[in-house]
Design a protein around this nucleic acid. Sequence first.
DNA 1: GTTTGACATGTCGAAGTCGACACATGCAGA
DNA 2: TCTGCATGTGTCGACTTCGACATGTCAAAC
Lengths: 177, 177
Amino acid sequence: MSLTHALLGLLAVEPASGYDLTKEFEQDLGRYAWQAGHTSVYPELVRMAERGLVEVTEEGPRRRRTYSVTSQGREELRKWLLEPWGQGVVRNEQVLRMFLLEALEPEEAAAALRGVIEHAEQGVTQLSAHRAHRAEEPPEGRDVLGQLAAEYGLRQYQAMRDWALWALDHLNQRRTD
Amino acid sequence: MSLTHALLGLLAVEPASGYDLTKEFEQDLGRYAWQAGHTSVYPELVRMAERGLVEVTEEGPRRRRTYSVTSQGREELRKWLLEPWGQGVVRNEQVLRMFLLEALEPEEAAAALRGVIEHAEQGVTQLSAHRAHRAEEPPEGRDVLGQLAAEYGLRQYQAMRDWALWALDHLNQRRTD
DNA sequence: GTTTGACATGTCGAAGTCGACACATGCAGA
DNA sequence: TCTGCATGTGTCGACTTCGACATGTCAAAC
């Protein structure tokens, strides 16, 4: 299961509690790669502990339990990361919508595409500002993952914008045929 | 549900059977936007027919049933497509793996990143060739969706490659600090 | 002292997804 | 003629995910 590996990966970078991990999924990781709520995270950590992939290494106030990856967990993660790159799970509601705009009347599709462009443009602007801001103090620990995700997100938005511009152009061409 | 809308969108472009729709999910649509097997498609079509979103407009050999969108279905699709662009469902195993490479030892991470670059490069090459080939005969019907998807896929692969190049460079820099 | 809000973990049922299994048809080629 | 293959549709159980609900703690502000 991918959730298992996502948790394994996060914990491999730095030990954390279910609460910390849940917040991670609300950041860039959840925005571009994999989503999970706390109702998935907590039970999964218990199952992973039972399988010996992780263990509780610290107990803090408010029942906080900090998990760390065991050597077995690290091995499982490594195995998964080094598998050949095939077709994995893909599920992206926004991209689905982009493709299906074709089903609208040309005028409405064009308007929606302009919406996509604006949305992507905003994403580019926001992440660029974020990057400039981060250049001053290099990230550590799990923040490095956040930086990787943010960089990817930036390129994603650029690709989305370029695609939408192309699609709009393409639509206009077909309209004037 | 997104599956509902995916089917609605495909049928809005062109009436089709569950079998046709399933094949569509095996193409670019399933590769970049949304996956679904026939075991999800057939029951969903029945449910959608019960809700009045689609209807059987033709019965062919081998129990083939061709579905079409009803006006109610078209309205539902339109409503969904014109909703404001927020954060939808995102699930991408490959991207997840890309981010988590950070958890590997620098040497292994670098090797894996070079794998990503090669993989993305292949994707770019393949889709570019596909595009050149398609330039001769413009697509029709559902093929237009395929073209939109392929164009998007091409930009995706480029973004993936660029990201991986950046990440590799970034990794080397941190290694020599 | 109490209220507010972030911290922190959990259950449970409904809904959605997936792989395994199942079965029947029409067509093309050996 | 028969054999294989793509076509075409379906069920079922296991697993995953998600939202709603529930509970308690600690610190700071008021």
